[in-house]
Simulated scan of single mutants.
Amino acid sequence: MSQPYLSATGMRGGYGKADILNGCDLTVEKGQIAVIVGPNGAGKSTAMKAVFGMLNLREGAVLLDGADITALTPQERVRKGMGFVPQTHNIFPTMTVEENLEMGAFIRQDDFRATMEQVYQLFPAVAEKRRQNAGELSGGQRQQVAVGRALMTRPSLLMLDEPTAGVSPIVMDELFDRIIEVARTGISILMVEQNARQALEIADIGYVLVQGANAYTDTGPALLADPEVRRTFLGG
């Protein structure tokens, strides 16, 4: 068995003395879309923050491409190949779209214009507004800018915290289509989503968290077909 590209095992931790994660495990293979779903307060976003190093673990380990990165800062993890798009405050609203993307390339010493063109090809609506301030865009377009900015670091693992929060169903479908396109280039995706049913439809693997622990782990289609998962988490 080859090592998963991301392997986060036995994660236990939280804020202050209270543990929110209680032995949570997450693995993502190269080019896979992994989706974390579950009820409010289940620890979904906390699990992602732990993977990115924004939360100190009391127990557990995070490995990326076989290397133990548990002790690394978020900045160091970005240099190792992690990209993270938070749910809110994920763009610079007073900067243009192009300046936002340039900010995403802050760790690069090479010519990043080819990557910027790839982002514009992936998100044509963003390309049209490259000279506009990002704060003037619609919610869905701002999310595209945020994802594009993360892609400017050329990540091998892209983490998205609630990428479709607050957008219309049409925009959600479009964002999911773009996420599939990103995964097809070999980038691994780890995503937290409230729109569980739609997210599991595109998931290679799904994790249902309850109280900071794995309640169900399976392929997206298998979880969608599981009567207990449907009844408890997907509204029947």
Rank of each mutant, 00 (worst) to 15 (best):
M95F: 06
V147S: 02
I69C: 08
G14P: 04
A215I: 00
A215R: 13
Q118A: 14
G220E: 05
R131W: 00
D25N: 15
T70E: 05
P86D: 02
G13D: 07
P227Y: 03
E98H: 12
E174P: 06
D19L: 10
M11I: 04
A114E: 14
E193M: 08
A61D: 08
V171R: 04
G206P: 09
K80H: 11
I187D: 00
R79H: 09
R230D: 02
M95H: 07
V229Q: 03
S2T: 14
R58L: 11
A215N: 09
E102Q: 13
F84S: 00
V208K: 03
M191P: 10
E59L: 11
D204E: 12
G66E: 12
S156L: 06
K129W: 04
K129G: 01
N195G: 01
S2M: 10
M1A: 13
Y207A: 07
T219P: 07
S7W: 03
I189K: 06
Q198K: 15
D65L: 00
N214F: 06
Y5S: 07
G81L: 04
I36N: 04
L101S: 05
R108H: 15
V229D: 05
S138G: 11
F112C: 13
D110W: 07
A125H: 01
L200M: 15
R12Q: 12
F84V: 12
L63N: 14
G148T: 12
I179V: 15
V51G: 01
A47I: 05
T219M: 08
K49W: 01
E228Y: 01
K44H: 12
G104V: 04
Q87S: 07
V171Q: 09
P39T: 12
V145A: 08
T88S: 14
G43M: 10
V192S: 03
L63M: 13
F52S: 12
R230V: 12
N56K: 14
V182N: 01
E99H: 01
A105Q: 07
R77N: 12
V37D: 09
M103E: 07
P169N: 08
Q87F: 01
V208T: 05
A150K: 09
G38L: 10
L224G: 11
G41L: 03
K30Q: 13
Y207N: 11
D177K: 14
V171P: 09
L6N: 05
D161L: 12
V208Y: 03
G31K: 00
T88A: 13
V119E: 02
A150T: 12
L122K: 04
L175A: 02
V62T: 12
G220Y: 03
G38P: 10
T73K: 13
Y207D: 11
F52C: 13
G139I: 09
D204H: 15
A18G: 00
A105K: 03
E181W: 00
F233C: 04
T185Y: 01
G139T: 09
G135F: 06
P169C: 09
A47V: 04
K44N: 11
D111I: 09
F106S: 11
N195E: 10
K17T: 13
G38Y: 08
K44F: 09
N214Q: 11
D173Q: 14
Q144Y: 02
A61Q: 15
E181P: 00
Q87N: 05
M48D: 03
K129F: 11
A50P: 06
S156G: 15
R12I: 15
V192K: 02
T219S: 15
